[in-house]
Design a protein around this nucleic acid. Structure first.
Lengths: 324, 324
DNA sequence: CTGTTAGCGCTTTCAG
DNA sequence: CTGAAAGCGCTAACAG
């Protein structure tokens, strides 16, 4: 089947292409009858607008790109799914793209944003060190919202939507204490990003204020010293003890312990890792909706005013509101 | 910063726009010196090609769309991540989009495929009953590959890339028996799609051939009768028994049993659901790569020959080769 | 080796 | 209420 264009429809209807263009948008200036006639012909002929042509003409696109490091972490896939819905409601399509923490892939995605097919982007820059690929985007005032992990540079504060991570750290401590924990080990890679740092700060403060004792995980550069950690973790054993940690991919060290584990967003370890796992989940829906709203404002220039940094309160724990 | 076009670069370099176009493609016909000069100016001025214009002119796009029901199931997110890499290697960008099992959202995505921004699509139609939105795509010979769940209609066999699900069903039975199971309950929603059906068939045949006894889960229409099931599951209790099942979102019925659970792709239940969980994972990487390869062939028309249905062998179990 | 030219399909002002 | 016309930015055939 050959492609059908506006001109084909115009010819068949005996009108001008611009009339067809208007009819398909339900332009109020046209006679209802004309609109109906044209629309039914377009329907019958299987006409589809060519978005490349539309974007070219208009000089702007209607796709929001959602750029995340992976889809295996709930913070990424759940916020992506919520953002999809919310973007649709606002008349945008949403395309998800994965950078895998790989600088080259990230830079490639950033490039694509400037090539006329993107109205704006929502970016989780976790695991990406170098954001210089975004400089040209900023120069062009390309609409970007950062979620979860902030950019760590002088981007506008209002361009960041993130959880109140310090509150989340405090809250997770409280939950573990409610579950019986009286002694803590904190495992955070504080050098890695702002989120980790803030969670640590919150947890540590809460513990100090409550006079609960804790030890630090053994770090090595930005990360953890896994070997030394194995040894120390091996000493744990009672449900009186809790380990507070980020989502650990290789959580072998924590397997089959009788302690309580508190972690953020989701537990990626073994199915039966410990006596009790307490998960503090971010409020993905609010994060996603807020990000899309703010991005839409940037795109429409609706709103030049400076927004404050969006600090989304930590949600109820263990909620699952997504597809599953 | 205003946008920079080919013409701007052409003017600055004192050449014609088409020369610039060629230079940026490293067209062998141009003098190396000219190419270098033009490229350095383009670089300096921050030139970016406008893909909307390119796609319009060429009449085709270079984005592959990966359409899945959700990102919470490993079959979806892992194959999406592998497909991203492989598509990049083949010179395509890959955009992921989620239909959530929602017919309207799926239809909308199908519409978008025909609007000039998509070179082809890889689709997992799980949870979508009505594929009629794809009819116009077929009429235009739009390149589509189905993965995981086949379309259940007369689409070309070679357009489907899926696991050998019957073999997977057999293999999972073997694993459970190796783990000590001597009695089985099979929980499948056979009416739901071909994958479920084939897994059931494989498991049932393997059990029959081995003379192992099994009972069926209690079904109700296409699904399971959860209440009746709860009661029956409550009777389970020994590690001699195994429950073979699809990935169950709400697996409360199976909590804290001493039986063995065998399931496909990933376990979505509680962190400590049973004495032993055995997961049979599809070979996402091969599925994704095969799908991208075949799609690329369709796009290039490289290959009019009929491919056979791609039946990917079931992979090693419990492998995790992705980002985490 | 490089320039000219004609459009890809759509939108949008301006005319009438 | 509808038509005419210009042009978005790029590419590719053809010309030289």
């Amino acid at each position: 089947m050959p492609k059908v264009t506006l001109y084909d429809i115009a010819r068949i209807c005996g009108v001008n292409a611009s009339t067809v263009s208007r009819a398909l948008r339900n332009d109020a200036r046209l006679k209802t009858e004309t609109i109906e006639r044209i629309q039914s012909v377009a329907e019958k002929k299987g006409y589809r607008p060519n978005l490349a042509a539309r974007y070219l003409k208009r000089g702007k696109a209607e796709i929001i790109w959602f750029i995340v490091p992976t889809l295996g972490a709930s913070v990424d896939w759940k916020s992506a799914e919520f953002a999809t819905q919310h973007a649709h409601d606002k008349g945008y399509d949403l395309a998800i793209t994965v950078h895998h923490g790989d600088q080259k892939v990230f830079d490639r995605a950033a490039e694509r944003m400037m090539q006329g097919l993107s109205a704006g982007a929502i970016i989780n820059r976790r695991d990406i060190r170098d954001l210089s690929a975004l400089d040209p985007l900023r120069k062009r005032n390309f609409p970007i919202i950062f979620i979860d992990v902030p950019p760590e540079r002088s981007y506008g504060e209002g361009l960041v939507v993130t959880t109140d991570n310090e509150a989340a750290g405090r809250e997770l401590v409280r939950r573990c204490i409610d579950a019986g924990a009286r002694q803590f080990m904190l495992l955070f890679r504080r050098g890695v990003n702002a989120v980790e740092r803030e969670r640590f700060t919150g947890a540590a403060r809460e513990l100090r204020e409550r006079g609960v004792t804790w030890v630090n995980g053994i770090t090595k550069g930005d990360g953890l010293d896994w070997e030394a950690l194995d040894e120390r973790v091996a000493l744990l054993g009672s449900s009186q003890e809790a380990v507070l940690t980020f989502a650990i991919p290789h959580a072998d060290a924590l397997r089959r312990k009788h302690c309580t584990i508190g972690c953020f967003d989701d537990w990626l370890g073994e199915a039966r890792p410990a006596e009790r796992v307490i998960v503090a989940e971010q409020d993905y829906e609010t994060i996603a909706d807020t990000a899309v709203d703010r991005l839409a404002n940037l795109i429409d220039q609706t709103d030049g005013s400076d927004h404050p940094l969006a600090r989304i309160p930590v949600s109820d724990y263990l909620t699952r509101k997504s597809y599953f």
